[in-house]
């Protein structure tokens, strides 16, 4: 399998994407943003359509649109509990714009979009470095912002009361997310980014309640999915995305099932036995 360069590239870039997406995914789930990765790929498409219309590099349009969308969703939604509302508002405007630019552009814009959505078995050596660079950059930012981001993601009310800049955190996280989605889209494709940013983290949530372990499990699940997906695909020739999505789904349902079983087995938390004297 590894006599082929493309499989080496796929394993290396796929591992970088998996670790990055697995870790970001924990925060995506905790912040209730599961659908935003999907939204960003549509937004990226609209941005690319705009760039083609303006005769720019499609990636520039993609980044422009996804980061603008990130800032507006963050600005609209920092205090909104139902985050799906600002997301839908922004998504519908952007999808409309995408169709507009697509129809305004002369020539085969649709075909040019193909340039934007990568395939994991078509990665060249320079993209492997690019992907590693992106993953390392994103992870460094996440490590430095770990405490603030974790507090704000899991306990937004507490974070605000503790004086954390919650709006800034929200926008910064969305920006980080939009850049990683836009870049990873080009290299590994939309379905893979969406799958790896949600399913492994969701599986990790049912397995552990410790944030550090969630991050670890999520990254490990994502990597297992990519490796086994690539291997299965190599020997059977069904699309890689299918296998990765399938493996992640199996992991998710297994973890979920295990959680349900464990909760049935475990007695509920002990009733109060804490002695606090009420006598002064």
């Amino acid at each position: 399998m590894f006599q082929y360069d493309f499989m080496q590239h796929a394993f290396l870039a796929g591992t970088a994407v998996a670790i990055m997406c697995g870790i970001i995914g924990v925060y995506v789930i905790a912040r209730g943003l599961a659908f935003i990765t999907h939204t960003f790929s549509h937004v990226g498409f609209a941005g690319a359509a705009f760039a083609v219309f303006m005769s720019w590099n499609p990636l520039a349009g993609m980044l422009l649109f996804t980061t603008t969308a990130a800032v507006s969703i963050g600005g609209l939604g920092a205090k909104v509990f139902r985050k799906d509302i600002p997301i839908s508002v922004v998504l519908s405007i952007v999808l409309g714009l995408g169709l507009l630019f697509l129809s305004l552009t002369k020539g085969q814009s649709n075909a040019m979009m193909a340039l934007l959505f990568g395939s994991i078995v078509g990665i060249d050596a320079s993209q492997v470095y690019e992907m590693f660079g992106l993953a390392v950059g994103i992870l460094v930012v996440l490590i430095l912002g770990y405490r603030m981001l974790t507090f704000d993601s899991f306990d937004p009310v507490g974070a605000e009361s503790a004086g954390l800049p919650t709006r800034f955190i929200s926008i910064a996280f969305l920006l980080l997310l939009s850049i990683s989605v836009a870049e990873a889209l080009q290299i590994v494709g939309a379905l893979l980014v969406f799958t790896l940013m949600t399913t492994p983290a969701a599986a990790a949530f049912s397995l552990t309640k410790s944030v550090s372990r969630m991050l670890l499990f999520s990254a490990v699940f994502a990597v297992i999915g990519v490796w086994s997906g690539l291997t299965l695909s190599f020997y059977t020739n069904a699309p890689v995305s299918f296998y990765i999505a399938a493996v992640e789904a199996v992991l998710y349902f297994a973890c979920r099932g295990w959680q349900v079983w464990r909760e049935k087995m475990l007695p509920s938390v002990k009733p109060e036995h804490v002695s606090v004297s009420t006598e002064m």
């Binding site: 082929y4 078509g122 695909s233 020739n237 069904a238 699309p239």
Partner: peptide, 8 residues
């Protein structure tokens, strides 16, 4: 979507 066989 290209498959590994196509890449091979």
């Amino acid at each position: 979507e290209p498959t590994p066989d196509a890449s091979k």
